[in-house]
Amino acid sequence: MFNIINRIFGKGSAGSKDIAKERLRLVLVHDRVNVSPQFIEILKEDIVRSISTYMEIDEKGMEVSLASSNSSVALIANIPVRRMKRGASFYND
């Protein structure tokens, strides 16, 4: 009802620009990844580097990819953990 009133007075979210913006945002996530094929590889290396402080991981079994639904894009990382480290870095001493 409120929407209808808004539409009559030409206000509110009745316009199509938000749809355009959202579609553009999503399509660009994929475009920008595809532009540089090394992107995922570089990202993987960075993830490995930062995680290695805390745990030992199986780099060969690691999978990183982008998955999208209608309204969002998610970075999906499947990283097999071999063992946790017992390092001092767990504690804020």
Partner: peptide, 9 residues
């Protein structure tokens, strides 16, 4: 009217 992306967008 909200039917065209604006500059900020």
């Amino acid at each position: 009217k909200g039917d065209m992306m604006d500059i900020d967008d």
